[in-house]
Design a binder for these strands. Structure first.
Length: 458
RNA sequence: UCCCCGGUAGCUCAAUCGGCAGAGCGGGUGACUGUUAAUCACUAGGUUGGGUGUUCGAGUCACCCCCGGGGAGCCA
């Protein structure tokens, strides 16, 4: 007999004479003549209650069906006479699949701290909160793909291993087959697998640009690696990034896409995983529901970098870091803009060229480039993007100006040499999107097995 | 890497001025009950993160180290 998922049973519209459920026991309550088993199979937040009468096949092992044990229950789906659930299973037989030693099983029926659950990352998806979180994460990933596919974007698999040490987006993790001793040997790096230095990618953008200039609209969605020694609640060494790239598009198109994508993804979770989302609105972040409503319901604020500096200068608030045209907008400034001044997402655009990357399109004022950052309350920067400099002479001049005479730019420049076109794109931190939607404040709690500075467990 | 806070039972925490190391939950045993964070009784459970020092006496004070959390920098 095929098992039925609990999500399906809880949504039942009528009784069923014979069902089979397999899952993990969340709690058991015993009477003299029968036991209640509450079972979760991960298909949804809810559990199904099974009533196990003494004497049915398998009842002998019911004492071993403690919290965490895996079991199979066969029986009749009937309306529950008790309070708290619409349906329950009147078991005709039960079977213990895998026992769970009650002395040592770390998960209890009560609430655990996030810090403790991080130390048992292999078991935390069995909790309500993390089960809900990873169902939402899956829904968000699906929403990203659906969004782009519905709009004619092609999904590009950009390489994870790169030989270019000039992607310029941060410190890179080295990929090698050499032992430390071999690396110091006579052949040096030439003896390595690729015969040259190799790294894990920090961005798929340089791959996406040539494909946008061929397929029109493309996006990458995959893991990204940064070796920054960042030790914060918002950084991981391995994270996922969504990077769309559009041909014949300018900065306004880029901002429109970013705003629309975020709204689409949030709506998808609201519509498709309402009960999982409700858990976060109730227990994790009481302001979540209101904030998400506002996020999808109102247009994002859009201001130029110059206007942002103006607002920050006039702000009746003392900042730790000085505000001034030409200086970077610090985390405290981002938070002030998104949380206090506007109280909603803000897109800041047209940044000074000196604080942004070489490939960003130079504006006519000679001072700024067509860059844009989407700043959201509580998270800060969630999207960073730009119009790309498509004019060969301007791009070459900027590369020379910054002294980036890297050989590897040759093929990149070819895209400007042959049939260049205006194009734009951005990077969306996928974990930050999960955090935004759930209200979870630590990136380690939205990644199955997080990899962070000095931490590589599981 | 810097600043701040913390580390006591399996988990969450308490312990006054430096003076006998505790509670709730969880576990085990039993009772009771269409129960549902069940309830009641009994019970087991500790190198107070590690080290050094001060002291008659250290969970408590000092120093070093380890680990966790929050914030900053960098960024997504």
């Amino acid at each position: 007999m095929k098992r039925t998922k609990i999500a399906q049973l809880l949504a039942a519209e009528g009784p069923a004479p014979r069902v089979l459920v397999k899952g993990w026991v969340r709690t058991r309550r015993d009477s003299k003549e029968f036991s209640f088993l509450e079972i979760n199979d991960g298909s949804c937040l809810g559990n199904i209650q099974a009533v196990v009468d003494a004497g049915i096949p398998g009842y002998d092992s019911v004492k071993e069906m403690g919290t965490g044990a895996s079991v199979a229950v066969e029986g009749e789906l009937v309306p529950s006479p008790g309070k708290g659930q619409a349906w329950e299973i009147k078991a005709t037989s039960v079977a213990l699949i895998g026992a769970s030693d009650q002395d040592t099983f770390p998960l209890q029926k009560k609430r655990h701290s996030d810090e403790f659950l991080r130390t048992i990352a292999h078991l935390r998806p069995r909790t309500n909160k993390f089960g809900a979180l990873f169902r939402i994460r899956s829904e968000l990933a699906l929403a990203v793909h659906r969004y782009f596919q519905e709009r004619g974007f092609f999904y590009l698999h950009s390489p994870l291993i790169t030989g270019a040490d000039c992607e310029g987006a941060g410190e890179m993790l080295r990929v090698t087959t050499l032992t430390p001793g071999q690396m110091l040997g006579p052949e040096g790096i030439k003896a390595d697998f690729f015969g040259k230095e190799a790294f894990l990618t920090v961005s798929g953008q340089l791959s996406a640009e040539p494909f946008a200039l061929a397929l029109g609209d493309v996006y990458t969605f995959g893991p990204t690696f940064r070796a920054e020694p960042s030790d914060t609640a918002r950084h991981a060494a391995e994270f996922w990034m969504v990077e769309p790239e559009m041909a014949f598009a300018d900065l306004t198109d880029d901002m429109d896409l970013g705003e629309d994508l975020l709204k689409y993804c949030i709506k998808a979770v609201m519509e498709n995983r309402p009960s999982d989302l409700e858990l976060f609105a109730k227990w994790v972040d009481t302001g979540l529901a209101e904030r998400l409503d506002k996020l999808v319901g109102e247009p994002f604020e859009r201001i130029s970098y110059t206007e942002a500096i103006d607002i920050l200068t006039k702000a009746k608030k003392s900042f730790e870091y000085p505000v001034g045209w030409g200086k970077d907008i610090q985390t405290e400034h981002e938070r002030y803009l998104a949380e206090e001044h506007f109280g909603k997402p803000v897109i800041v655009y047209d940044y000074p060229k000196d604080i942004k990357a070489f490939y960003m399109r130079q504006n006519d004022d000679g001072k700024t480039v067509g860059a844009m950052d989407v700043l959201v309350p509580r998270i800060g920067e969630i999207i960073g993007g730009s119009a790309r400099e498509e004019r060969m002479d301007r791009l070459q001049a900027r590369i020379d100006e910054l002294g980036l005479s890297c050989e590897s730019y040759g093929w990149y420049l070819d895209t400007r040499r042959f049939g260049t076109a205006p194009h734009a794109g951005f990077g969306l931190g996928f974990e930050r999107l999960v955090m935004l939607v759930t209200g979870v404040t630590n990136i380690r709690d939205v990644i199955a097995f997080p990899r962070t500075y000095k931490h590589l467990e599981f």
